[in-house]
Design a protein around this nucleic acid. Structure first.
Lengths: 195, 195
DNA sequence: CATACCAATCAACAGAGTGTTGAGTGGAAT
DNA sequence: ATTCCACTCAACACTCTGTTGATTGGTATG
């Protein structure tokens, strides 16, 4: 039941979010004022406060939305197969889907992970990977047998490395395809194997 | 020629920096005002502006100083041996020195890499590792022969992974010794080799 | 048709922080 | 004795914040 009021609210929120995103491309989150946002969105400043507590709340909701959509995207595309593969330790099929989603939402990822932003999203995304990939793999006893490294360090190492690949990809303006990125990921693992 | 005036300035700057560091433990960089800093440091607000342009400049100078000192620390302890090892691809001796320096300056690293801070220092530290380790290793043709992955991706992957280990260590309150951390680093590489 | 509803607008508010200024204090150097 | 220098202090105009109460103009309901 999307009433005309709901649509009105949605349209206003989208204007706010879009204007905010553009401003974050130009300058630091801390230097973007609510004034700036509402002027760019061509709405009254009071209207902003009808929808968000402050600009932190706005950023938080936008980051949260992006991660929730990523979760849905992954779930939609892996009823069983991908999950089983992941639990066996084959991460590449998941990886390609992550790269694909990031490509589809490159603008937001570039801004949220970029220099003008708060460190919050980096940590959030890392935590997302830990929960969605590492935790599942950790449960597979066979996969991690004989490793003398605590799980939290192993998780942090692996997810940071993966995130490092993503951040470089975004910095390079997504010059590679998602498949190429996943292939590169495998290649690096191979390289380390043959050290 | 450290005149009494230089000492006076140095003492004031230290009071400012120490107060700032304490405040960053409690709250977000964005929510720390110059007022807060000068009140905590028990100096006049005008005095702050005699030394820093604004709080961004203060943070910038503190981060820069930490990285410059890390550079000195590494150079002091490797006239030739470590450098050669690094060029051969043996990163562990460098690693233990990095962990040692971080342990000595844990408070600042925890704050600058923590949630309350800007993403700037994470990127700066990563860039530092790229310049000091990866770039040198990249010059060693033998080490990277037959790798089909672009250098920037390889650098980002490896330095992010290492930084991930550091960040987890800091989050765990530096429960391990620098040597244990370097050993863990080697163990992870071994683990990947045997995948 | 009347009227209740709702998102958005507008102007005004007190409070807080910003960066700058000019005058003044007190110890150190010459 | 006088100049130098870091710092203090009070005041300045300015911007941003979050909130309020009154108002506008479409939309839905009896």
């Amino acid at each position: 039941m999307a009433s005309i009021y709901d649509e009105m609210v949605e349209k206003t929120k989208e204007k706010i979010q879009q204007s905010f995103l553009q401003l974050l491309k130009e300058k630091n989150f801390m230097k973007v004022s609510v004034r700036d946002i509402t002027e760019a969105a061509e709405i009254n400043r009071g209207t902003f406060y009808l929808h968000y507590l402050d600009k932190y709340d706005l950023l938080d909701q936008m980051e949260e939305g992006l991660l929730l959509d990523l979760e849905k995207h992954l779930e939609r595309l892996k009823p069983d197969v991908l999950l089983e593969e992941a639990e066996k330790g084959n991460i590449s099929m998941h990886a390609v889907e992550v790269f694909r989603y990031i490509q589809m939402n490159a603008e937001r990822f570039q801004v949220f992970l970029g220099e003008n932003n708060h460190i919050g999203f980096h940590k959030r995304l890392k935590q997302f990977f830990v929960e969605h990939f590492m935790d599942k793999m950790m449960k597979n006893e066979n996969f991690f047998k004989g490793v003398a490294v605590p799980q939290d360090y192993l998780s942090s190492f692996a997810t940071s490395a993966f995130l490092g690949l993503i951040e470089q990809w975004l910095e390079n303006g997504l010059a590679e395809t998602p498949s190429e990125m996943a292939e590169m990921y495998i290649q690096i693992i191979f390289f380390i194997k043959n050290l």
